[in-house]
C-alpha cells in the first residue's frame, strides 16, 4: 500500500546562520517526525510570493497574483493530506491554501494557528486575546469533548492537552465546536461533511505517545490514504 504524501506549510524565520541574517522557511521537526511515525511522507510547502516574507512590512504586502496562486495549487496537488501548523503569523496564502483544501476535500489537520486560520476563513472575524492572560501559554489543561468526529476518534469525554496560545477563536463560522477547555475557550473545531477537516488549538505533534494525539494522527493519515486511493482510481478511470 502506498504511503500518502503529507504537505506541511512552512513558517518564516530569519535566524542567524554563519553570521548572516537569512530568511528561511522552516518546519518544526515534531511535525515531520509525527507524519513519518504514522505512515505518511512529509514534504514542506513554501509560499510563492516574490518578496522577503520576514522583512516586508505588512502594509507593503501585495495580494497574491494569479501566477502565485497557481504555483501554490501545483504544490498542493502533490499532497494527499495537509497540515496547517502552529506559527505566530499568518499571510494571505494561509487562507488561500485553507480554501483550496476545503473546496477540494483534501484531508486537513489544523494545529494551533492552523485551527485559527480555519475559523477566521469562515467567520471573517479576528481573534480575541485569551480571557485570562497567560492562562493558555505553556501549560497543560483539561479539555472536554463534545459529540462529533473528534470525540469518536479519541473515544473519550475528556483529555489533558498542552497549550501554547495567547489568542482564541470566539466565532468558529460554519465549523462545529467540538472541544472546550474548562474555562470555556474553544479548543477544537471540525467540519463533519469533509473527508477530514479538524482543527485543534493544542499541539498533538509535541506528544505522540499520548493516546488521544496518536488517534488524531492515525485518523488523519487514514483519511489521507483514502484520498490517495480515490485519486488513483480517478486516474485510471479517466
Amino acid at each position: 500500500m502506498e504511503k500518502p504524501i503529507i504537505g506541511i506549510l512552512t513558517g518564516v524565520s530569519s535566524e542567524h546562520y554563519m553570521g548572516k541574517d537569512l530568511t528561511q522557511f522552516y518546519v518544526f521537526n515534531d511535525y515531520n517526525t509525527a507524519v513519518l511515525k504514522f505512515g505518511g511522507l512529509p514534504i514542506a510547502i513554501m509560499p510563492t510570493k516574490q518578496m522577503d516574507y520576514k522583512k516586508t512590512p505588512k502594509e507593503e504586502i501585495t495580494p497574491l497574483t494569479e501566477e502565485e496562486k497557481n504555483n501554490l495549487i501545483e504544490m498542493i496537488k502533490l499532497c494527499d493530506g495537509f497540515i496547517m501548523p502552529g506559527e505566530t503569523r499568518s499571510f494571505e496564502h494561509n487562507y488561500f491554501i485553507d480554501s483550496y483544501l476545503k473546496e477540494n476535500n483534501i484531508p486537513t489537520l489544523g494545529i494551533c494557528l492552523g485551527m485559527q486560520v480555519m475559523a477566521i476563513n469562515s467567520s471573517k472575524e479576528k481573534l480575541t486575546p485569551v480571557n485570562v492572560e497567560g492562562s493558555h501559554f505553556r501549560k497543560m489543561h483539561t479539555v472536554k469533548l463534545e459529540d462529533g468526529v473528534l470525540k469518536n476518534i479519541i473515544g473519550k469525554d475528556e483529555v489533558d492537552t498542552n497549550s501554547y496560545h495567547s489568542y482564541m477563536v470566539v466565532n468558529p463560522g460554519e465549523y462545529k465546536v467540538v472541544a472546550r477547555s474548562i474555562d470555556g475557550v474553544i479548543e477544537a473545531i471540525e467540519d463533519d461533511k469533509s473527508l477530514f477537516r479538524i482543527g485543534v488549538q493544542w499541539h498533538p505533534e509535541k506528544d505522540t505517545l499520548d493516546d488521544a494525539n496518536k488517534k488524531i494522527f492515525e485518523a488523519f493519515i487514514d483519511a489521507s490514504i483514502k484520498y490517495h486511493e480515490n485519486k488513483q482510481k480517478t486516474n485510471y478511470d479517466s
Binding site: T23, Q24, F28, N29
Partner: peptide, 10 residues
C-alpha cells in the same frame, strides 16, 4: 532551542 529543518529564501 527548537530544532527545525529549513530552506533558505534565495
Amino acid at each position: 532551542s527548537v530544532s527545525v529543518t529549513c530552506s533558505y529564501d534565495g
